[in-house]
Amino acid sequence: MYFEGSEKKAEIVIDSQQLSLLDDFADEFWASLVECCNAQILSHISNEQCKAFLLSESSLFVWNDRLLILTCGVTQLINSVEYFIQQVGVDKIQQVIYQRKNEYFAHEQASCFGDDIKSLGQYVKGKAMRFGELDSHHNYVFHQDNDYLASAEDKTYELLAYQINSEASKVLTTAHLSAQKIRQFLTIDSMLSGFLIDDYVFEPFGYSLNAIKGDQYLTIHVTPQEDSSYVSFESNLNLVELAPQILAVLQPASFDLITFNEFEITDLLTKHVPELYVSQSLVSDQLSNGYQVGFANFIKPQRTFGNAKSLDIRGENHAL
Rank of each mutant, 00 (worst) to 15 (best):
D198P: 07
N79R: 11
Q216C: 15
S193W: 02
N261P: 03
I117T: 05
R130M: 15
M1H: 04
L320E: 01
D24T: 01
S16H: 06
A106L: 08
K213H: 11
E35V: 14
F185R: 11
V124I: 15
V231Q: 01
S20G: 02
K9G: 06
E82S: 14
F131A: 07
L21Q: 04
G206C: 05
G132T: 08
S284E: 05
L67S: 04
K155I: 13
F295I: 08
Y98K: 10
F113K: 15
F53D: 08
K9Y: 10
A248Y: 01
R314P: 04
F233N: 03
A243T: 01
E262F: 04
Q144M: 15
F3D: 00
F3R: 00
D65A: 08
K271V: 00
C50W: 02
V74A: 13
I246F: 04
Y277T: 03
G290V: 01
D285P: 03
E262K: 11
R303Y: 07
R66L: 10
V249Y: 06
A253P: 00
L239K: 05
Y162T: 11
S119Q: 14
S166G: 04
L22K: 02
C36Q: 15
T219N: 14
E108F: 07
Y104V: 13
W63A: 10
E35Y: 08
G294A: 03
K271P: 00
K92C: 07
Q99A: 14
I14H: 03
F205N: 12
G214H: 12
K9S: 06
A168M: 06
